[in-house]
Simulated scan of single mutants.
Amino acid sequence: MTTTEAPAVPWGDVLGQEQAVATLRAAAGDPAQLAHGWLITGPPGSGRSTLALAFAAALIADGPHDEQTMRQVLAGTHPDLTRLRTEGVIITIRQAREIVERSYYAPSTGRYRVIVVEDADRMTERTSNVLLKALEEPPEQTIWVLCAPSDADLLPTIRSRVRVLRLRELEVDDVARLLVERTGVDPALAEQAARHAQRHIGMAQRLATDEASRERRDRTLRDVLRARGISDAVEVAGRIVQAANDDAKALTAERDEAEREALLRTLGIDDGGRVPPAVRSQLNALKEDQERRAKRSVRDGLDRVLTDLLSLYRDVLMLQMGHGAPLINAELSDELRALASGWEATRTLSVLDDLARTRGLLDQNAQPTLALESLLITITSGRTP
Rank of each mutant, 00 (worst) to 15 (best):
L225R: 07
S150I: 04
A190H: 00
R216H: 10
E191V: 13
V234R: 09
S150Y: 10
P156L: 05
Q198G: 05
R226M: 14
V234T: 13
T220G: 09
R182A: 03
R182P: 01
E181G: 01
S160W: 04
D223E: 13
S231Y: 10
A194E: 00
D153F: 06
G229I: 07
R214N: 05
L146V: 08
D153R: 00
E171D: 15
V175T: 06
L132C: 11
E140G: 09
Q205M: 15
A193W: 01
S213N: 08
D232W: 03
V236C: 03
L132F: 08
V236F: 04
V236S: 03
V172H: 07
E181S: 05
E181T: 03
P156W: 05
P156T: 03
S231E: 14
E171V: 09
T220I: 12
D218Q: 13
L207H: 04
E191T: 12
T183A: 06
D173M: 01
P187C: 02
I158P: 00
R222T: 14
L131R: 09
M203W: 15
Q192D: 10
D173Y: 02
E140P: 04
V185P: 00
L221I: 12
V162H: 03
T142Y: 01
V130E: 12
D186F: 05
G184Q: 03
L135R: 11
R161E: 07
R166Y: 08
R163L: 14
V236T: 06
Q192G: 02
V175D: 01
A227S: 07
V130R: 12
P187S: 02
A134Q: 02
R182L: 09
R177N: 11
V224M: 04
I230T: 15
H200I: 06
A208C: 02
G184W: 00
E191L: 13
A148P: 06
A197T: 10
A227T: 06
S160V: 08
A152T: 15
Q198Y: 10
L165T: 14
D151K: 14
E137N: 07
D186A: 09
R168D: 08
E140M: 12
A193K: 00
G229S: 11
P139D: 14
D174T: 08
V234E: 12
L146N: 09
S160L: 04
E235T: 15
V172N: 11
A190T: 01
A227E: 00
A194H: 02
T157S: 04
L131M: 11
D186N: 12
P138Y: 03
E140K: 13
R182Q: 12
H196A: 11
E140R: 13
A227W: 03
H196T: 13
A188Y: 00
Q192S: 08
V172R: 15
V185R: 00
R217Q: 03
V162A: 05
V162L: 07
E191Q: 13
V164H: 07
